[in-house]
């Protein structure tokens, strides 16, 4: 029983948040802040696999998020909403409970495939040159979307809230909140299982000594493929959820600025620490909201804070440690290996 304390606690917390939101104790604003937290947790932890565990410098995470957001939005709009170009909804709203997760998965899959653009060059090159490739990939994805009239080009794409309405119409619950919370738990859970397996430990082995890894039987190309595709796929999942939370997306919201933001969270939390990424994502979201009153100065203050962090605690909040490394007693309370 004790072993399951953490899991039970986590799901109790989710249930509590959902209940509070349902009863309107948490108003619209707080609910959406919590949802952005969830999306950020997903983004930060998935980027951490590449930038933290694998030690690459991917600065195009926003691009993969964009692919996931647009592909899944296109799916749900096609299925559940009326669109001028795509026509009437194809499916009755009751099916949204199945259709929405499938759409998210399709988006994630598409993003994972987009991850190949970066994964394949990573076989031959690394470091700075790979960083440019990720950067170029980000720009390419954004300008490709900008040129696609079917998803509205630079004006953006909307109609995703129909899915939320379809689900709430059947059972009245804050569905997006539920999906975001489950999505972030799923992301961290999946990554945690991967990086603690001997298979997944091939990823930090590449970071620490790629030549030794390859010679000691780690198939480095396969590991890079897995790492990049998993990372971009989960970013796509986050993107899908983000799009449906907002109900509207435009290409500019996934540009290099977004990618930078995710990087900030990763380095704030500590490279190679999943709990660090989660903590950083949550505190970053809170910080962003708390500094809202600064208006334009916010984007002066936050980079300055990060510069100071780099000077005085460059390893981030957690370094490469997990919470359970710092507080070994915590291990008693969870069992997900």
């Amino acid at each position: 029983m004790q072993k399951h304390t953490f899991t039970i606690g986590l799901f109790a917390l989710i249930a509590l948040i959902v209940a509070l939101s349902q009863l309107n104790i948490l108003d619209q604003y707080y609910t959406s802040v919590i949802m952005f937290m969830g999306v950020n947790v997903m983004l930060a932890s998935s980027l951490n696999l590449v930038n933290g565990y694998m030690g690459e410098f991917s600065c195009g995470h926003g691009g993969f998020m964009c692919v996931g957001a647009y592909v899944s939005s296109l799916c749900t709009v096609l299925m559940f909403s009326k669109n001028q170009i795509l026509g009437a909804p194809l499916l009755p709203p009751q099916l949204a409970f199945i259709g929405f997760p499938i759409a998210l998965m399709v988006g994630a899959g598409a993003a994972a495939v987009a991850g190949l653009v970066v994964a394949i060059p990573s076989f031959k090159t690394r470091g700075d040159y790979l960083a440019i490739i990720t950067l170029a990939a980000n720009y390419i994805i954004i300008s490709a979307i900008n040129n696609m009239e079917i998803v509205g080009g630079p004006r953006g794409f909307m109609g995703m809230s129909a899915t939320d309405r379809a689900m709430s119409g059947v059972i009245d619950l804050p569905w997006m909140l539920i999906f975001v919370l489950l999505g972030s738990v799923f992301t961290v859970w999946l990554l945690r299982r991967f990086v603690t397996s001997t298979l997944g430990k091939g990823v930090p082995a590449i970071c620490q000594d790629e030549i030794a890894a390859e010679i000691m039987s780690v198939d480095t190309n396969r590991m890079k493929l897995i790492a990049f595709m998993l990372s971009s796929g989960l970013a796509g999942l986050a993107g899908g959820l983000y799009a449906h939370v907002l109900g509207y997306v435009n290409p500019q919201s996934f540009d290099i600025m977004r990618s930078t933001e995710v990087m900030v969270m990763v380095y704030l939390g500590g490279m190679g620490s999943l709990s660090g990424a989660a903590i950083a994502a949550v505190s970053y979201t809170v910080l962003m909201e708390a500094l809202r009153f600064l208006d334009v100065w916010k984007w002066v203050v936050i980079p300055l804070l990060l510069i100071l962090l780099m000077q005085f605690r460059p390893e981030g909040i957690m370094g490469n440690k997990e919470l359970s490394d710092l507080f070994p007693k915590l291990r008693k309370y969870y069992s997900f290996k």
Binding site: T198, L199, K201, G202, P204, A205, Q208, D209, I211, A212, A213, M216, S217, V218, D219, N320
Partner: peptide, 20 residues
Amino acid sequence: RLWSEMTVLDNIRIAQHYRL
């Protein structure tokens, strides 16, 4: 050329990658 940020045990585990 050991993987210096991973434990000795992990170093030895990872070298069995080809027969996971």
